[in-house]
Design a protein around this nucleic acid. Structure first.
Lengths: 142, 142
DNA sequence: TCATATCTGCAAATGTGTCGCATATGTGTA
DNA sequence: TACACATATGCGACACATTTGCAGATATGA
């Protein structure tokens, strides 16, 4: 898991043509630190402990960072979004269809599958980054 | 794409130990007919044209049918759920991360990938049915 | 330092989905 | 077929995630 210094993140923001505000930097920094994709609720909780920051600001920054390609937005069918740093590498996870359990799996390439799917596709020509969610039931729920 | 008669669907409901009500049958029948996974909004619109049916009823029936394993619930990061008939076979789709475009791709097996992921997993032992969503950008948004 | 585009907090508004409750309906049993 | 009871339904209120309008604050280039 790559570690980014605050200065690194500032560079990322500038490269993305985003203004470097305290709050935006803080949001980016917070997401960069989490191990599992974080919910907005978790992020807001964490951020509020450090600084007085409104949830609307958190939402707006998550959106701008996502649009700029710095964050990946994930949805696990749980009714709320999750965010993680956009690493350029694909993101794969098993997701429980019953409870909120998710498990990121590292080190598996699905490039072949993506290639096959693109070959059959009419609406997609290439994918930039992609994430794959496989839904099943976790041990507790099975 | 398998076609189900109304009688077939009644049998499915009975096998699932669900009461056969007009509304539940109608919801199931409607989902069974759509080609692409349908949003609740679309289903409510379609259903309202045929019969006076409340959206709470639609939601409740979609849930009971999903819990009973007759419907698959999908989330494409668009802020609302989609439903399709649970076929037993896996469901694969390319999803645009920018607009609402999705494209189902048939005839690709990802059993090997699922097997590999399960092997690395600590929280999942086996998957029942699974669906895979690969996020990228569609031609228009690329 | 200034001008201006962008950001922020606040409160109110949306959108999606759920719940409580009184009434209606399906289903097994007599 | 009629009954009893569990379950389903409609309605309105509610809950939660996310967005928006607006007025004041801040970042950035000139």
């Amino acid at each position: 898991m790559a570690m980014y210094s605050r200065d690194d993140l500032v560079v990322l923001l500038k490269e993305a043509n985003l203004r470097v505000t305290d709050h935006r930097l803080l949001v980016l920094e917070t997401v960069a630190k989490v191990k599992q994709p974080a919910t907005v609720y978790e992020l807001v909780e964490t951020l509020r402990k450090k600084e007085n920051i409104d949830q609307a600001t958190v939402y707006r920054n998550l959106s701008s960072l996502h649009e700029a390609g710095l964050l990946r937005r994930l949805d696990f069918n749980h009714g709320h979004a999750h965010y993680e740093l956009e690493t350029g590498r694909a993101s794969h996870q098993l997701v429980c269809g019953n409870c909120e359990t998710i498990e990121k799996i590292e080190g598996i390439s699905i490039d072949d599958v993506v290639k096959k799917m693109l070959k059959k596709s009419k609406k997609f020509k290439h994918t930039t980054t992609h994430s794959m969610e496989i839904y099943g039931l976790c041990k507790s729920c099975a």
